[in-house]
Amino acid sequence: MDGSLFMILAALLLVVVMLTAALAALLSESHLVAVVSLSILSLGLTLLFVLLRAPDVAMTEGVVGVGLSSLIFALALKRLRLYRSSTPAESCDE
């Protein structure tokens, strides 16, 4: 099954999704969008770990990366007052 077309296509799809999410996390205007993109990246990574026969790691990444990390980042957004202000607009603090 390894090296089959299904596996290659699945890996390609997941890698593309993950790289897109990574770029979106760094380049998007809104911080909320960035955090959600990071969560999507973790989800792609989880599925990739399942493909790579690492169920333990997939479980950890799913629980920690998709769940807890997003929760921590969401609380941080609230606490850092970053919900609305995008990256360029925050310079009005000056």
């Binding site: 333990d56 997939a58 479980m59 629980v63 769940g67």
Partner: peptide
């Protein structure tokens, strides 16, 4: 469940601990 079956199935203290915390 995840914590207690860590030695049998995928999962264990770290994963189950995070679930419990949440």
């Amino acid at each position: 469940y995840i914590v207690l079956h860590g030695h049998l199935t995928p999962g264990g203290g770290f994963q189950g601990g995070v679930v419990i915390a949440v």
